[in-house]
Design a protein around this nucleic acid. Sequence first.
DNA 1: ATAGACATACCAACCGGTCGGCATTGACTT
DNA 2: AAGTCAATGCCGACCGGTTGGTATGTCTAT
Lengths: 195, 195
Amino acid sequence: MARTKDPDPEVRRRILDVSLDLFATKGFAATGVQEIVTKAGVTKGALYHYFKSKDEILFEIYGRVFGHELESLQRIVAEGHDPVRTLRTIIVDLVSHTAAITKESAVFARGGHADSPHWQAMQEQWRRYQEGFRQVIRDGQEAGAFSSKASPEVASWSVFGFTNSMHTWYRPEGRKSPADIGEELADLILTGLQS
Amino acid sequence: MARTKDPDPEVRRRILDVSLDLFATKGFAATGVQEIVTKAGVTKGALYHYFKSKDEILFEIYGRVFGHELESLQRIVAEGHDPVRTLRTIIVDLVSHTAAITKESAVFARGGHADSPHWQAMQEQWRRYQEGFRQVIRDGQEAGAFSSKASPEVASWSVFGFTNSMHTWYRPEGRKSPADIGEELADLILTGLQS
DNA sequence: ATAGACATACCAACCGGTCGGCATTGACTT
DNA sequence: AAGTCAATGCCGACCGGTTGGTATGTCTAT
């Protein structure tokens, strides 16, 4: 029974969970390593056994934010539906995904670490997602589905701003499901775009 | 030339300006007092002569964010125009104001200091502004100007999310003026609300 | 003389990070 | 089966540097 090496022990998980909580509520810089280990019920030795720096914990959290959203968008576009249905699906997908990672989203929203490669890499992914989103709107305008007077930039920032601020007000125990909220947002934006 | 006692000496201003810059780009916690005074070309003695703590600098910046926005909203409502025009004016006003204080807005967006009374006071003002905004939408729905199917919450968070994220993309040297951008956002949201 | 406007030197506390050590465990040898 | 060994997982005392903040002094204008 070759017991395989545990790839993700509970101690490591606890450190990550507690860090996520603290980074989301207090911010990365304002959170001390000592605070993390105390709340997680472990020691500094344990933390530095699993992570080579405090930064690395942050980077692992970053990785969960935009990991697969660009692929998701491209997959939806590839399905080849009409612009209205395509954009609606994208918006609902984005809102649902953001609702599922509110804490990570809060850490991301606080920003920081502008000079680290990890942060820049994530910003680049995020930028590409934005560009893909706007391209869907532009395609829809050329196809005549959306008004040419509307601004793809303003429309996209309404949606991104909405999702970026979700962590400040969205609560999972609320009446509306993430999908419901996404549909309502899609209703609003799509109506506006079609004018 | 009786040089009157300067109520806001240049040294104090420089400290405030530099702090605003650093807090907006690096975050409050990640910015050291030493860093502020070095960049401002003054000494710590000067800083602690004008401010009794690093926090107080932050609080003074906070004060500039929502100082008069609630009054502005109430003044616009009091003018008694139709819901569509009222909401449009409010949105343009909010976007313009946010564009004028992008750095302060960035500091606010990073959040933090959840337990300080200053932060909570500002959150309360912000909450009241949101409520006033949503009430305009609800009034418009009762008056039949807006569709009753639309969600005031989703519509308002599209606008607030938009303004909250402006500091990440708005540049004063861009082609569109803040008022232009505000009009475009108003077009989008108002069309959506009227369905 | 008095008060404001700083400069300078300094401090305890805390920061992220390190390091030698130790208990446990599975693999390999005999 | 017993003994050896190396690796893993973790502990906690410790480190140099930095932190926000202060005490005291000096200069200047009134």
